[in-house]
Design a binder for these strands. Structure first.
Lengths: 208, 208
DNA sequence: AAATTAATTGAACATACATTCAATCTATAA
DNA sequence: TTATAGATTGAATGTATGTTCAATTAATTT
């Protein structure tokens, strides 16, 4: 008996507002009081659902990493086609995910990982699972002889190094044309690693 | 007449302690009061030399970026040899600079760049100058026919993408062996880009 | 209707923060 | 020696922080 618990739902609501405020004003400028004000609730209610601010922060990190994982949604099905692999590459080198999660916050918590082991492990496991997913996709493409990639795991790693390295620099680039050209260049490098001629797939690739 | 100004020297002292404390406890946990306590001076003295905390933070960022630039010290002289280029590559793929500046803080302020235009410009200009320096080094090696790199600028960019992308992932890797192996692999990729056979240079490269 | 469980509020807490201002101390030049 | 400019202190300010606790309100079951 008693009242139905809203814990899960309420926690998510709070995290979403936390995310929203932190995106706008920065994580370090986002207090429990601010979140409460935006939600028009009492700050102590937030403490009621998350015992400490630390817990709340971990909640936000999980939220962001889940969305980070979500954007790539690398297919796990058996019936992988070359077009699936290609769509994945296109996705990795697009900037669609900006709509799903904030780069600034992603890097903020990445920086935090250097001092907090828990966060480091979270990030590591997410990054690993993405690499693993891409590697097994390449493997299945190999099996069906769509590709002939020698070492799928190494190839997947290298592609992600390109992705991460490219965005690290390009996030600072304000010239949109330069941005697009560079990204396109690195994308072609990725296709090269896979032994795929991007010209053959031209129909599916939007012109740069 | 009057007293000699200590401004410059004192500012540097303060920044160095700021760096030290922030490295240990994180930027967001480092207050003016904490810095003052470590230095055994009054907090208001810090405000006297840096009008606001913002100014102090910019000072720290400049300090870190200067050191970041310093570690690479790409030679600017005319007499560039193949060994100079090679030393640069070795340096880029070593982790020596950990002694000079803290990765965690470097990424902390990198994350801040997403919200603060001034910081973004600082980072961009540092990253660009490194790329430019490497590109012109390659060019001079081309002139002397040590290398035959088609597009030195693009090659330099690509090498830095490898560096940045590799460290982005590897900073989360705690397995030292895996860390070293991966780094070595990406370094070889860099040599490949330059058309240099790393085996020919084996004497200068420490075994992985 | 009564009992129970959870949601929510509101007041209060100690603490830490960046910054201010006036006062004092100290080195240097005239 | 005296005037002066800068170094340094110390007290004070107002604001924001995370967290606590008791009190109240609302939903659900018996």
């Amino acid at each position: 008996m008693g009242r139905k618990s809203l814990k899960g739902a309420r926690q998510l609501e709070i995290i979403k507002i936390f995310y929203k405020v932190a995106k706008k004003e920065g994580y370090e400028n986002t207090s429990i009081a601010k979140i409460a004000k935006v939600m028009d609730i009492n700050p102590s209610l937030i403490i009621h659902y998350f015992e400490t601010k630390e817990d709340l922060t971990y909640g936000l990190i999980d939220y962001i990493l889940e969305r980070y994982l979500l954007i790539y949604t690398i297919k796990d099905k058996e019936g992988v086609t070359l077009s699936d692999l290609q769509k994945t590459i296109e996705m990795l080198f697009s900037k669609k995910w900006n709509l799903l999660f904030d780069d600034g916050l992603f890097y903020t918590f990445y920086a935090l990982a250097f001092r907090e082991k828990k966060i480091k492990e979270k990030y590591k496991s997410i990054l690993d699972s993405l690499r693993f997913a891409l590697a097994s996709m390449i493997e299945r493409c190999n099996e069906k002889e769509f590709t002939k990639v020698e070492d799928p795991k190494t190839a997947a790693d290298l592609i992600f190094v390109l992705v991460d390295g490219a965005y690290f620099y390009l996030s600072l680039e304000s010239d949109k044309k330069a941005y697009a050209e560079r990204l396109h260049y690195y994308k072609n490098k990725a296709y090269q690693i896979l032994g795929i001629d991007p010209l053959l797939l031209a129909d599916l690739i939007p012109a740069p």
